[in-house]
Design a protein around this nucleic acid. Sequence first.
DNA 1: TTGCTGAGGGAAAGCGGTGTCCGACTACGC
DNA 2: GCGTAGTCGGACACCGCTTTCCCTCAGCAA
Lengths: 343, 343
Amino acid sequence: MPAERRSHPVTLADVARRAGVSQSTASRVLNGSERTVGGELAQRVLAAADELRYSANVQAQAVARGTTTNLALLVSDIATDYFSSMTAAVMSAAELAGLRVTIAITERRLEREIELVRDLRGQHARAIVLAESGTRSREGVERLQDELEGYEAAGGKVVVVSRTTMPFDFVDLDNFGGARRLAVALTRLGYKRFHVLGGDEGLVTTRERIEGFRDGLAERGLELPDSAITFSDFSWEGAFGAVGALDDAVLSNTQALFALNDEMALGAIAGLRNRGMRVPDDIALAGFDDIRTLRNVVPGLTTVRVPTAQVGRAVVELIAGGAQSPTTVPATVVIRESTPRLN
Amino acid sequence: MPAERRSHPVTLADVARRAGVSQSTASRVLNGSERTVGGELAQRVLAAADELRYSANVQAQAVARGTTTNLALLVSDIATDYFSSMTAAVMSAAELAGLRVTIAITERRLEREIELVRDLRGQHARAIVLAESGTRSREGVERLQDELEGYEAAGGKVVVVSRTTMPFDFVDLDNFGGARRLAVALTRLGYKRFHVLGGDEGLVTTRERIEGFRDGLAERGLELPDSAITFSDFSWEGAFGAVGALDDAVLSNTQALFALNDEMALGAIAGLRNRGMRVPDDIALAGFDDIRTLRNVVPGLTTVRVPTAQVGRAVVELIAGGAQSPTTVPATVVIRESTPRLN
DNA sequence: TTGCTGAGGGAAAGCGGTGTCCGACTACGC
DNA sequence: GCGTAGTCGGACACCGCTTTCCCTCAGCAA
C-alpha cells in the first residue's frame, strides 16, 4: 500500500495538484461541464482521481451549483405495505433519473408536514412528493399549501399523489373509477347489500372511493345509504375496531363489506373472526390497493389493484422528465375468493 | 401580503441586512453557536428571519462546518416487512438524535453496495448503516470492507447490523440464541423430526440461525443432519420454490419445518398449500422475525421475535450517543398455533 | 506577415454559510 | 483613575466546488 493515509477527505484541489493541472480543469474533467479538456490532461486527471479515490463532495457541488438532485418523499408511515411499495417504486424510478431520494415520515400530522416542508426548502430539495392522501381541516391545509407554495417560489417542484385538491402537479390514482368498477363487478356476482368501512372521513381518498362505489351501485340500480358507511381510519386497527363495534343487525343484513383499503380489509377479517364470522362464508369482503401481503391471505382477497410502480414512474417523470400533464393511473379490479358468486 | 416575491431563496445575508446586523451575528442567533448574542439584537434577527421565512441552507452549512447530519441506511429491499420496519425504527430513533436518514437500496448486489459507499463518502454522510446480513464470496466482501474502511478513514462511522464478521461497530441480533430457544421450545412441544428451510447459504444470518437451532436440538438429544436443510434464499419465492421441490418422502417424514425467516415461512405455507398440505394439520411450521403481517395469517405462526425498534435505537446510539460497546439485541420465542403441542 | 477565430488552460470570484480574530465597550479591582 | 478582564459585534478568511473571464496559442485566411 503506497501511502494515502491522510485521514481527511480528498478534495478536488488534491486531485488537481497531483495531476499538475488547475482546479478548474480537474473540475471540468471529473464533474461534467460544457467545456472539453484536452485528451492528455484529462487522462492525467482521471488517473489522479482514481489513485486518490476521489469522490466529489456533493454538498459543495450543491452550494456552488445552487441546486441539488434530492427528491423528498413524504409518507405517513413507512412500515406499511402500501407506502413501502410506493417508496420502492419512487426510489427505483428516481435512481434511473439520477435523483437521490430522502424519505420523511409525517405520521399524518399536519404540523409535522409543514415543518418538514420548511426544512426541505432549506435543504434545497429539488422536489417534494406528497405521497399520502390529504385534506383534513380546511384551514390546516391552507397553511401547508402556503408553505409548499413558498417552496415552489424558491425553485422547488411539488408533486402530490392522490390529492388533487391542491394546486400542484399531481399523479392521481383512479380511485373513483376503481371503486366504481368494483361495485359493478360485485353486483354482477349477485351482491346487493353492502357496508363500507371508510378511512379517515376527511380524506380525499376516502371520498373518492366511496363516491365511485356509490356511482357503480347506482349504475346497477342500487343505493348506498350513509348509514351503510362506518368511518374509522385507514389502518388495520381502525377497521378491526370498527368491525368490532358494528351492530349485529347491520352485519347480518349485509352481504359484502367493502374496506377502503387492504390494510383495513385485513383488520376487518381479524375483527370478524373475533366475532365468530368467516370470510367469505358468513360475509364477503373486498379491499383496495392489492398490497403485497395479500398473497399470504387465504381465501384470497378481492381488491382493486393500484400499480405503484407506475405511480412511481409518473411522479419522477413529472419531476425530471419535464412532463407537464398530470397523469391518472388506472386501477383494475381483481376478483378473488373473498367474494364468490352468490347463490 | 407585504412583498417578498423574490423567487430566489432567502439567504442569511438577507436576514442580517434586514435586521441591521452583521452576518456573523445573524448566524450566531439562528444556527446555534457557542457565543451568545445580546437580547435586543437577537430579537431583531429572529423577527427578520421570520418575516423573510428564512430557512438555512443545509448544504452550505455542511460545507462550512465540514460535517453533515446524514445517516445512510443500506437495505436490500425496502418493500419488505422486515426492512421497512427496521427502517422505520432507525428513522424514528435518528430523528430524536437530530439525524436525517437517507435510504439506499442495495438489491443485495455487492457491486452496488460498493458504489453506494463510495458515493456516500462523497456525500459526507455522518454514518453508514448496513442493515442487511452479509458475507457472500470472501473476495467480494473484502472489496466492500476496503471501501468502508476508506469511508471511516475519511471520518465516517460504520455500523453493521447482524454482520459481525466485519470489523466495525455492530448491533447483533441474537440469531443463535433465538434459534436455540426455538428448538428447545419445539422439542418440548413434542417435535422430534425437523426440516430447515434456509436462506442464502453464505449469509451469516443463515449460519447463525441454523447453528443455534442445531445447538438447541442437541441440548435435547436430537440431531439435525445436513440432509435436513434445504437452502434457497431469504424470500417468499425462495421458500415457495424450495417447498415445491421437496421430496414427498422428506416431507412426510418431518413433523415441523423451520423457515429461517417469516417471509420464507409464508412462502412455505403457500408452497405447502400448493401440494395440498395444511399447517399445522399436516405439518407444523415456525419462522423468525415476527414481522408485522403475521397478524394477518391464520393459524398464527410460531416465530422468534426480533425487536426492530430496539435495534434502531441501538444503531443510533452507536452513532450519536457515543456508546462504544456493541449491543446484542435479544430474540424471544413466540409460540402460536402453527406449532401445536404434539399428541 | 498580420489579424482573427476558436480551443483550452488557469486565476479568481462567487455559492451560503461558519468560525476566528480583532477591536470597542463595559465592569471591576485596587 | 488606571489597568485588566470579560462581553459581544463585525470583518474577513475560509469550506470544496463551479463558472466566468481572461490569456495564450494554434490554425488559417488574406
